[in-house]
Design a protein around this nucleic acid. Structure first.
Lengths: 157, 157
DNA sequence: CGGGATCCGGCTTGATACTG
DNA sequence: CAGTATCAAGCCGGATCCCG
């Protein structure tokens, strides 16, 4: 539960003038932002940008996501009003997910970011080589990786 | 911490069939994207967008970040070529951080996303209330035991 | 099919302490 | 000031079983 650990902003009164400063620790927008930019949030939003899908369709579309995380992320996005969930009490059950207008707007900007990063990847790769080379030269043979650089996930499936 | 994990799987062969697809787990852009959208990456890039800062200035600017995470994230961003680090061997030491042109371009799109989320937070908050209310209602009506409902979202990373 | 509940390992994070 | 080293916890996220 990502929820705000600090006291919630229950008083709706003057929330507006305080603006939602992401740089402040207790800002509620931090939470939503993390849902969106999180490990699966972006991929799910991206997938939903292309239409309406059922649970297992989504699962197939977003490679590597487990039932649990898909369900969990979908709930977080639904709660934030980015995703609309429509369940039909038929048999077998059928549940459709699609973006809300708000979700689509956010997904659009997120994809703009993703596309830029992809376009510029050659530069990033070059920078990485330079950095690693300089490091191997000056430092010992330790060669630790920078931060959580290689997060990738195991192969599999 | 010298967990020299076997490098990232960015062999060119793996990504060949999907080329530019973020949806593929082996895509190298995923790594950079996570540095950028990670818990602190976005805030640090946002802070640096307003100028050049020293380590502790940055720490004060980004509320809640620990020395370790700041250092770690900064290194990852430097390695990816988004941040430039300039150290002066003076006494006391002085190190300046600033965005590279690439980092600025990426930060710009990231901030566009962040600003959108901030602007729309009222909608998000409203959606949250509706969701929570509906949830509390159905749960109470069913008369089930009061578990710890909120399994909202992911957080972490 | 569409999830909920639980167990559990491992990565990520946060204090604290130490170096230059 | 600008980090690095070490340690302990906490939470994420995967696997599994189960229900409607």
């Amino acid at each position: 539960m990502d929820s705000e650990r600090t006291g919630d902003v229950s008083s709706t009164a003057d929330v507006a003038d305080l603006a939602f400063d992401v740089f402040a620790r207790a800002c509620p927008s931090r939470g939503t932002l993390e849902h969106v930019t999180g490990k699966w949030g972006g991929l799910i939003l991206g997938a939903l940008r292309e239409g309406t899908f059922r649970f297992n369709e989504l699962r197939r579309r977003v490679d590597g996501v487990s039932e649990k995380m898909l369900s969990q992320t979908l709930q977080a996005l639904e709660r934030d009003g980015l995703v609309h969930r429509e369940a039909q009490p038929t048999n077998p059950p059928r549940v459709d997910y699609r973006l809300t207008p708000l979700g689509d707007a956010i997904a659009e900007r997120l994809l703009a970011l993703i596309n830029l990063v992809e376009d510029r990847m050659p530069e990033v790769l070059t920078a990485r080589e330079r950095y690693d080379a300089a490091r191997a030269e000056s430092g010992a043979a330790a060669g630790r990786d920078a931060g959580r650089a290689a997060l990738a996930g195991r192969g599999g499936r």
